[in-house]
Computed example of a mutant assay.
Amino acid sequence: MGVILIKNNKGGVGKSWISLQLAGCQAYKNKKVLILTSDSQNNILNFAGIKVDTSKNGLEDMLEGKAYSLVKLRPNLFFLHLQGYKLKKDYEEKLKEAIKEWKEDFDYIVIDGSPVLGLDNIFMELAEHIIIPTFLDKVTTNSVVQMLRTVDLNKIRVVIPNRVGRTKIEKNCYSFLDERLKKLGKLLTMPISQSATITKLIDTGSLIWDSKISKLNFIKEIFEDVWREIENE
């Protein structure tokens, strides 16, 4: 059992997509997985090809003791959306209690983290494992370095370079992170390259685990590597 937070203070690095693929890896192994989010865009739904009215029956209603619904994305894979309106002041303890109860029902809880509404602070506290997606540019690399300085290193497991091309800057950023993470005993995965195949999956609302395309095997193995790091702790 574990609570896994996908976290980077810089937006747009693919947190939601990576959260979904990471969770899907275990769901397709018949593990029961719940995805939570602090991102009011609820991009998880779009990436999974699911349409839901996110104005009701979500996390906020749950915290207020109202009816809520877990959205079934795939067999064994569930999602609780964020409704996007202001949370009441006493939500913190209720959220902690809810996650405690969910841990009894689910093998894993994967959290798509985004620094909004104060939720991320709670998710940081409750997370047992932190995964950091990144671009291989100077700004995002510096964001990762800052996280390594400010986040509990005992929780950080893996850094995943995402949407990577073949530029010299990207190669230099990868080498820089690789050297730093090795000193800390943390894994830097092989990069997830920009891919027309992934773009097509996103457009059709498909997970990589839905597909048998051989080109995706390398990317699937990256997520398997992440889970090995999590489970070896």
Rank of each mutant, 00 (worst) to 15 (best):
S16H: 00
I156C: 04
Y108W: 10
T134R: 14
N42V: 12
E93Q: 13
S38N: 10
K31Y: 13
H129A: 05
N232H: 12
T204S: 15
A48T: 00
I198P: 04
L80P: 06
L20W: 06
K29N: 12
L80A: 02
N8R: 02
F79R: 09
V158Q: 05
L45T: 14
M190V: 09
T189G: 00
I202T: 08
G118A: 03
I111T: 01
K89F: 15
V144F: 05
N43R: 01
I18V: 11
I111K: 01
F106G: 08
N162F: 00
L126S: 08
D90I: 04
L95F: 09
D178A: 03
G205H: 10
G113Q: 05
N172G: 11
T54R: 00
D137N: 04
D120N: 12
S143T: 15
D178C: 04
N142R: 03
P75C: 05
R180V: 08
I169K: 03
R228G: 14
K182Y: 06
I156G: 04
K155L: 07
I4V: 11
N42L: 12
Q41E: 14
E101R: 14
Q26R: 15
L22F: 00
Q83I: 14
S175L: 02
S19G: 06
D210A: 08
I122Q: 05
W102L: 12
E93S: 09
A98S: 09
V3R: 15
I202H: 05
T197I: 13
T204Q: 15
E229I: 01
S195V: 07
K182F: 06
N46W: 08
L36E: 10
V116P: 08
S69D: 15
L126I: 04
G11R: 07
F218I: 02
S114Y: 13
E179L: 05
N43I: 12
T134P: 01
L34Q: 02
V13Q: 02
L201Y: 00
K220Y: 14
I131T: 03
K212E: 05
I198S: 07
I208L: 08
N8G: 01
K10H: 02
E231V: 13
M62E: 02
G49R: 07
E179M: 05
M190A: 12
G118R: 00
V144K: 01
V151N: 00
D152N: 08
Y174S: 11
V116G: 01
V52Y: 08
W227H: 11
I160F: 03
N172C: 05
I198M: 11
